[in-house]
Write a protein that binds this DNA or RNA. Structure first.
Lengths: 226, 226
DNA sequence: CGCTTAATTGATCAGGGTCAATCGTGGTGG
DNA sequence: CCACCACGATTGACCCTGATCAATTAAGCG
């Protein structure tokens, strides 16, 4: 067994990374400990302060992981799609909470079981490491996005990121509301809306429906995302 | 051996976490592979795009890890102090660059060597995992900070975070320039300066010297940090 | 002591936040 | 089937925070 420090997958293509869990030299290590659960749209999966008994893998649907600030503001740390793992935290209790953006199917893993498995099978430890590194890359990418000044830059980046999750990379289906996007980008709902309208006026995108966006000029978007 | 998923150390107290590398059940696993290097203030440690041959541990001094955007803006992802590990990335080449904020003493580890050690000694894999989790917590904290709206909130949080690195938690010695702070918080140098001046006018802090700040009213700062 | 670079302060401007009204859309029940 | 309702999204008007531009001050350092 070799520790694979070199993982060349770009951070925005997490979905495609599911393979490492099913690959030849690394069979799905958590499956035996996992329980399939369904969560309805809008429902909470875990809350800030709860014990970190479990972590989860998304089978289908979209999950948001977020923090509620004292004054009511909400900050979304990440959206998670099929294949991604979330709720995997350092301390004994969750620092963040998680909710279903759409109806979701998840696998829930008992941390205790996985810890025990890690004792017997060190490839599990390695997988925990890889999951942590994936999350790290994602979190760093998010910081970079938030640090970016312009609202346009943020929105353009967001669309490009989500285009990679689509089958057709010119059609972006957004599972989340404008409010979710705003809270993810550190903007207001109005600014997100205005930015999208502006992009449509400029002929860069087309808002087929509220949740369905056609990317008409990906290059222009990439320029805007800087 | 047990995989320690439960690490209760708060993310802002990374410095104090050096112990896990020297503790009884986890002797310093990288030391044998490490080389001590000195880096002068302002010097580059590695650049974006370089091969990720090495990663580093800070012995003394402060390091900034950052990204340069196409238009010249700079975004600082993190500052690293004694005991912390950085330059530990997913891909084959660095996404971020690193520079010495002050004169630094570092230990450089060849990734190849550590990979080989991980084959023989699985506690190394575990340590890689723990380092990744620490970095993750730090990156998430940073996202939260950047997402927060007010300039004051950001500056207050920043000061409180750095107070934990001081021996006397009422005296904060800043190794970095205002520009560094600005690039870390996603603000301009002027806004950082004005925020500090405002805090001083309000009697919350005292600017003993440019780089030395006395926290006169920690509680007020905590309120501002929200 | 003057030179250079960082930091502070001031004046002005603009991007995005806030408040408020309107529009769409999907769901429900008559 | 359609009218109504509720909620999300869009759009507009205005304001405020923080960016920008510019000048001054302070702090190393040869």
């Amino acid at each position: 067994m070799t520790v694979q420090l070199a993982i060349r997958t770009p951070s925005h293509a997490l979905k495609a990374r599911t393979d490492w869990m099913a690959g030849q030299d690394s069979p799905e290590p958590f499956r035996v400990a996992g329980t399939v659960v369904h969560v309805d749209e809008g429902r909470e999966i875990f809350a800030e302060g709860e014990d970190t008994d479990c972590f989860y893998k998304v089978i289908s649907g979209v999950v948001r992981v977020c923090k509620f600030l004292s004054d009511g503001r909400r900050q979304i740390e990440a959206f998670h799609v099929a294949g991604e793992i979330f709720g995997f935290e350092l301390g004994g209790e969750h620092i963040l909470s998680a909710e279903a953006v759409s109806d979701c199917t998840l696998v829930s893993y008992r941390r205790r079981n996985v810890e025990m498995m890690a004792q017997k099978d060190h490839t599990v430890t390695r997988h925990l490491f890889e999951v942590a590194m994936q999350s790290l890359a994602q979190a760093q990418g998010h910081s970079l996005l938030l640090g970016r000044r312009g609202a346009m830059e943020k929105v353009a980046s967001f669309l490009l990121t989500w285009a990679t999750h689509s089958t057709d990379r010119h059609i972006v289906h957004l599972a989340m509301t404008r409010q979710d996007i705003a809270d993810y980008l550190g903007l207001t709902i109005e600014t997100v809306s205005r930015s999208l309208s502006q992009l449509e006026r400029d002929g860069v995108i087309a808002l087929s429906s509220v949740r369905e966006i056609r990317l008409k000029n990906v290059e222009a978007l990439e320029d805007l995302a800087a």
